[in-house]
Design a protein around this nucleic acid. Structure first.
Length: 420
RNA sequence: GCCGAGGUGGCCCAGACCGGUAAGGCGCAAGCCUGGAAAGCUUGUGUCCGCAAGGACUCGUGAGUUCAAAUCUCACCCUCGGCGCCA
């Protein structure tokens, strides 16, 4: 959520942001109109309430006819107040809906662009490796080695679900543990949060309302299957006020993520785009003055996973048109999959400035006697498991169809060197 | 699911039976005092409207009664304890 004062005082900035993100500027105009009406009514209501409060102070001291006269007057004033308050609540609902749909303002360092074609490649390495055989795609490897079972995933749930089996399941678990241990050493505190969250949480991090159709919803309890551990972990501190010394706070969490992928393409084979996947997430609560430097660090921490695994990858700085709703600046990490000859987004690292903090009311006190301010929040995947697994499988495959286990994962697989 | 207790400002806690517009404490800060500090005293400490003066709001949430609700009525939510069920 943007600062309402910012929208009022600098609407041009918001307008430019909406335009650069391919959003309708109507959102801004609607906001300004409704907000103006709201302010007028607040003012009028306050005047009437002042009148009523003064009368209420006087009434106990009055007697007889004069008292009855004022009471009769106040009865009407109260009626009017009730009407105005009702209108205010209505306008607040409308305004709230609008403001929840206005995206964050991109940082000045973010390139202006229309779509993913305008993203900036920051750096890239390792994708020029030559195979002396035709590398297989991950789903071919998965089926040939009997470590991914698509048919049975579909049987127990439906299309878009898969089963890991044997060394497939072990590889996933090894990757998870490797990532968590690495992030632990980088100073992140490990969290295991609930995988089902309430509405306040999905509003807090910005998935609701914009992405609500992409989440699974438990209607009976009005709860949501978390689409990313970002949601429960960031909302851990909803409605809290930190002392300055407590920041920064860095968390890592491993959790299944659930996505309906409403517009899922039928031709997305394999485990690249699925409805349930494990992910290791990094979340940070930081001081506003350092947040963009902190983003560089967080991205480096996610990159370290790929470096440890010795996978080819590249770093993208997303342009305004391709960035997520709540983000002010986003780097994507893409691992190269030689079988599919494709870059796979395995991580997305974002600085949300105070956008999420304002929605979730997460604050800190700059000085003990000063007013509390919103913190800045960051997060990034470190990393998404299935796509990382695809990259490992396709890069580490051998001519005979086996897969070499990356060195850093062997301690987590009882020293096993080969999947065959 | 049932029974009981509770939800009050950054934190703690009174007020509720009997309606009159949130008392007190802690923490923190500023000022006074001091050689300096402690103690003490004074003031401040949430949200919103307003350029300001000033005003409005805030006692878990929502509705109702009333000139007026922390206080009365109804519904709901959450927390804690006990019982039940349970991997």
């Amino acid at each position: 959520m943007l600062d309402i004062d910012l929208i009022r005082n600098d609407p041009d900035k918001v307008r430019a942001s909406l335009r650069n993100r391919n959003y309708s500027e109507q959102l801004l105009d609607d906001f300004l109109r409704v907000d103006g009406e709201w302010r007028k009514l607040i003012d009028e209501g306050n005047r009437l309430k002042y009148e009523r409060n003064r009368a209420s102070e006087a009434i106990p001291k009055l007697k007889g006819e004069e008292k009855q006269k004022i009471i009769a007057e106040m009865r009407q004033v109260s009626e009017k107040i009730k009407q105005i308050d009702a209108s205010i609540i209505e306008l607040e609902a409308v305004r709230g809906e609008i403001v929840l749909n206005i995206p964050n303002i991109p940082d000045a360092s973010v390139p202006v662009g229309k779509d993913c074609g305008d993203n900036l490649i920051v750096r890239s390495f390792g994708s020029d490796r030559k195979f002396d055989f035709a590398p297989k795609k991950h789903y071919e490897l998965g089926e040939d080695l009997d470590i991914i079972d698509f048919v049975r995933g579909t049987k127990v749930t439906g299309s878009g679900f898969f089963v890991l089996k044997g060394d497939g399941a072990r590889l996933d678990r090894a990757l998870t543990q490797y990532m968590l241990d690495l992030h632990h050493c980088q100073g992140y505190t490990e969290i295991f949060p609930p995988a089902i969250v309430n509405k306040a949480a999905v509003i807090g991090t910005g998935q609701y309302p914009k992405m609500k159709d992409d989440m699974y919803w438990c209607e009976r309890d009005d709860l949501w299957l978390n689409p990313t551990a970002e949601v429960p972990v960031t909302n851990l501190h909803q409605d809290e006020i930190f002392e300055k010394e407590q920041l920064p706070i860095a968390y890592t969490a491993y959790l299944p993520s659930f996505r309906r992928e409403a517009g899922r393409n039928a031709d997305t084979r394999g485990i690249i785009r699925v409805h349930q996947f494990n992910k290791v997430e990094l979340v940070k609560f930081v001081l506003p003055e350092t947040s963009f430097q902190d983003l560089e660090v967080l991205r480096d921490d996610a990159e370290a996973v790929l470096q440890g695994l010795e996978l080819p990858y590249r770093v993208l700085l997303l342009c305004t048109g391709d960035m997520g709703f709540a983000s002010a600046k986003t780097y994507d990490l893409e691992a190269f999959a030689p079988g599919a000859d494709q870059w796979l987004e395995v991580s997305s690292c974002s600085c949300f400035t105070d956008f999420q903090a304002r929605r979730a009311r997460i604050k800190y006190r700059p000085e003990p006697h000063l007013k509390s301010e919103f913190v800045h929040t960051l997060n990034g995947s470190g990393l998404a498991l299935p796509r990382t697994m695809v990259a490992v499988m396709e890069n580490y495959q051998n001519k005979d169809g086996t897969i070499t286990v990356p060195k850093v994962l062997r301690p987590y697989m009882q020293g096993q060197e080969l999947i065959e």
